[in-house]
Write a protein that binds this DNA or RNA. Sequence first.
DNA 1: GCATTTAGTTTTCAATCTGAACTATATGCG
DNA 2: CGCATATAGTTCAGATTGAAAACTAAATGC
Lengths: 417, 417
Amino acid sequence: MKAAEMSLEKNADGGAGRPAPGRVEDVRRGNLVRVLASLAEARTDPDVRPTRADLAARTGLTKASVSSLVADLVDAGLVAESGTTRDGERGRPGVGLELNSRRGVVGMEINVDYISAGLLDLGGTLRIHRTLESGNRGQPPEAVMALLAGLVSEVAAEASAAGTVILGGGLAVPGLVDSASGTVASAPNLHWRGVALQLDRLLPDAPFGTVLHNEANCAALGELWYGHGLDFHDYLFVSGEVGVGGGLVIGSELFAGPLGQAGEVGHMVVEPSGPECSCGGHGCLETYAGQEAIFSEAGIPPGSPSVRLAMLGEQLASGEAAAVSAVARAGRYLGIAAASTARLMNLSAVVLGGHFTQMGPWIAPAVVRSLADYAPGVVSPSRVAVSELGQSAAMQGAAGSSLRSVLAAPFRLTPSG
Amino acid sequence: MKAAEMSLEKNADGGAGRPAPGRVEDVRRGNLVRVLASLAEARTDPDVRPTRADLAARTGLTKASVSSLVADLVDAGLVAESGTTRDGERGRPGVGLELNSRRGVVGMEINVDYISAGLLDLGGTLRIHRTLESGNRGQPPEAVMALLAGLVSEVAAEASAAGTVILGGGLAVPGLVDSASGTVASAPNLHWRGVALQLDRLLPDAPFGTVLHNEANCAALGELWYGHGLDFHDYLFVSGEVGVGGGLVIGSELFAGPLGQAGEVGHMVVEPSGPECSCGGHGCLETYAGQEAIFSEAGIPPGSPSVRLAMLGEQLASGEAAAVSAVARAGRYLGIAAASTARLMNLSAVVLGGHFTQMGPWIAPAVVRSLADYAPGVVSPSRVAVSELGQSAAMQGAAGSSLRSVLAAPFRLTPSG
DNA sequence: GCATTTAGTTTTCAATCTGAACTATATGCG
DNA sequence: CGCATATAGTTCAGATTGAAAACTAAATGC
């Protein structure tokens, strides 16, 4: 497995290869990561910039080792010194260290109605974000990728003008993907199937390349790193799109499953006697909480998804009974799937994303009630939350994934690496 | 976290402590583990005993390093030389190496109707196995533990007579446990609640101590290491007991969940309009596939569980319609839960254990059919299997867990450790 | 009996961390 | 101002470790 995929593919190893033998040099690699992680972690308070001495205390390494490691990281461009920091105490003031904000990663997303790209600096701050409306359903992958490449080059140009070097990127696509080969196995909503994307052309100069990810998983990760993840470390993320996607976050990491495709909440069975689903099964969650199910139950006439979604929003706001009960029904079945998941995997929180975000006030209470009915005492009401990031969650998750892979393999940029 | 808990608690870390800083000595620790793992893995063919040179080739370490590492492992008593092995080729014959069969771990189980203890040598061979019938339901924990201690001391005496040194042990209990504190949070079938067990008294001289585990999880692990796990690396294990327990094996490891209590398949929701469950929910799998549910649906009169189970077996064998359809119904709901699990976690196999083992020929086809109905193409019929170990799965899993923790921390027995 | 082959050991060397000594630079007090 | 003190960071010797290569040991085969 390439290092660039580690953050998303942790569980998809397959156990093929025995880990490389431990050499003395590996200790340094591990310690480079440790120092960098410690620096990233200390960043929660933006005013406090740890010094070499702080990092030594935090990591347990000696000052001598930390100095040497930091020197390598500075040479690699990952860490920057930022003036002396004085505590007001006596003694020689330390030199503040921070993740180099002149290095960044690009998050990209192809969705049904739009494409987007954004730049995250190493500290995790979103510096640039561009979205382009684009009806991608049924469009040839080459055309969409060309459009995205254009958007990305705008972002890259702006980054370059600001002196920022791009190290890697992540692309989120709504479908089943194979990250290792950069192939979209199937993306029903785009009508793509078995498409090998030319990922290398998006960011030709980035040393970590561009990695392909599933959109719902990315949204779950975006939520983890830049949204609710600050409070929740283990949760089920359910993303309402055309279907119902999802992601499992366990111990602040995405659980990708043995084949890298876990989180298909939409096809959990929530009603054995329910209608047939497009997957060939019966009573899948998607047949109750997918867009089409909600729209038709609410009596919303056919049309473009965004129009119908807006219409649903209006009807909910005005208290239209059919709309309210359609959403409540979706929430009830979401709660059933969440109850089973919580029991099975010992999870204690649920985050609702995608179009469920807009239905939050109407759907969340139904989920809470359903959880109380079907798994009392397992998920407390305060741990049913609505996504904080909305539409940018997947893009930020894709960028964050790339960011993590950089921070997990700094040695790829050091001379010794 | 204590090293002895690693194998079962991998997912329950909580992420509290930053890993210890990497020192040069840690490389050796890692390589000791690597060599030992390579030796254990090579053991699949019992006639082939790898030599130092073989291990060097397998691990990627140099012959010199392997020689030095093996010397430490021999000193620690974990590895033994076993005569020269000649390939019939030219050249100096190598010295065969094997896991020292004079070192062992003890597996223990407390269940509703019996207690048992067994000795596994480091190679994973079950050397001793004793079971004692004992109605433990409602008995005070001290009394049951005293009985178990007696059984264990018999096993220990026999091991000692054979020159085998016991390094550690694992105890499986049917209930929610906290391994870190050695406490049984609740074991409904034993009527235990919040009981702190005196684990240290069971094997006072074992350097790795005794670790407490959940019985269904242990059974899943026993199946993994000594049963179907040889073929399946990712599966849902469903154990029929009074309730319905389970375990998730992902990448040949137990998935314990963030709180260490994953695998509660019995309380997944399989029928939203179903009857109330003892957990307070509705339509849980347990209300369809638990012992009581199957017995009453089959029209088997109240009585002792073992008698009723035998009666059910007879009726199934003679093709009694009520019994057959009761078991088929349980299988259908098992299949629904398995379908949801397979979809959610991207699993592709199901192993039925506990009392489902005895119903195998009647229940497995129903599970297969249900999976085909609710998650077509996800779990192939050949990947629905019945446990191979039966009643000893949990005991062997508990022992195997201890064995793994020894092999994962050999440095605890070396002078350098 | 000697070349050849393979197993395992010994020796030398480079990488790396630790720990202690040392240098650099601030504060605070007389 | 000058000096004690405190903290940051660097330098250097020492210990541990694995790699690489040379070396010894013990077999086969002609």
